[in-house]
Amino acid sequence: MSSSTSSFKKTLSLSLIGFVGVILAVELVCRGLGFLPLVWFGKYPVEWRIVFDRAKNSLKNDKPVVAFVGDSRVEWVVDSGLMPSMNKSFDIYTLAYPGASVRPILRELLHRDFAPPVLVIGYSHLSLYWSKVPFFPAEKVKIEDRFNSKIDLFLTDHLFTYSPSLFRRGLGGERSWMASRSIARNGRASMQYQIAHDAAVQEQRNWYKTMYEKPMPADQIRAINDDLLKLVLEFKKRGSKVMLVRMPVDDWVIDLETKHDPVTFEALTKLLDVPGLDLNKNLDRKKITYFDGLHTSIESAPYVNQSIAEFLQENVH
């Protein structure tokens, strides 16, 4: 072996060691300063598409498919594993997306020719009226993409330095609410908080204050409702039984939503001509706890899913 080749390998080895050392030092320093990786609030677009593909393939099976859509209030709670009575007869999937408007999700399902026998739409002010979170699911997911995405998203969730954009946001003082997340095969996002409860509640209160700062014009509300009605009618035309569910929220959220209601839950179910379940009225509220006022806690999820299962059994024939 020539001395030049040996020198090159030595230089390369030292460079790699130095690179890894710099990354390790940055990770340790950032964590020492209180920075953490910015764990996402639910499914990434590629993960949504993977769950969607499972749901669509399930249409070929004997058991009818039940698909839930909406935002994180649905995504973090609805779990087929907590509905044993329904699992025997249905394949249940959670195709909700964090922070997203439900109407683009519905359009995506129609575009993909997916009209499940039962479609349950999650109602929230954010998801139906105020959300501006973009929803762009992956166009197509190959086998190698599934493997690569697991590695990529694992590194994104666990390394502060892996994603340049998250690195810059973290250096700017942004902190992650989440310590970890996992996505079940049926689409439920299991989230573990690291932000203090009181701090989370205060941030959500601030967000609600911003959301309601400027009243939504009546013609805009009417246009949104008309668009939603057209989408629901198209699903009905394709054979879907459509329902509306309002997930439980804390008292202060109910007070604000009631004060700023674009349209009441009851009025919307009447407009869409669909069965509706308002879990804020159908449950013993003393039995439910929340992460931040908006999201049902892990401990309360079985109770909430049991009520959803009973509602489905009453309305699916």
Rank of each mutant, 00 (worst) to 15 (best):
D145T: 06
A55Q: 01
M216T: 05
I195Q: 08
A200F: 04
Y44C: 07
L110K: 06
H111P: 06
K43R: 15
Q204W: 01
D227Q: 14
W207Q: 13
Q313M: 12
R222W: 06
I92K: 09
S300A: 15
Y129D: 09
K10T: 07
F235S: 10
F52C: 00
S190E: 15
L110Q: 13
L109P: 09
E314F: 11
L244Q: 02
L106N: 06
V253F: 12
S13E: 07
V304C: 03
R246G: 15
V29D: 04
R185W: 01
V66A: 06
K230W: 07
L228T: 05
D250P: 05
V26P: 08
P217A: 09
A309K: 03
Q194S: 06
V263E: 09
A267L: 00
L256G: 06
V66I: 15
W130R: 10
L155Q: 00
L231M: 02
E213K: 13
K132W: 06
I298V: 15
S3Y: 11
P137G: 05
D113H: 11
S180F: 05
R54C: 00
Q192W: 11
D113V: 05
P117S: 01
L110W: 10
Q192R: 15
L277M: 02
N315C: 04
L16P: 00
K241L: 13
M247Y: 08
G34N: 07
I50M: 13
L16R: 03
G187S: 05
I254Y: 03
L12R: 09
P217D: 08
D152V: 08
W40M: 10
E310T: 14
K286I: 02
A138I: 08
V102S: 12
E314Y: 07
V51I: 09
R112E: 15
W40D: 13
A100K: 04
D292Q: 10
F154A: 00
E266D: 14
F52N: 01
L272C: 04
L155W: 00
S297G: 13
D251H: 07
S297I: 07
N61P: 01
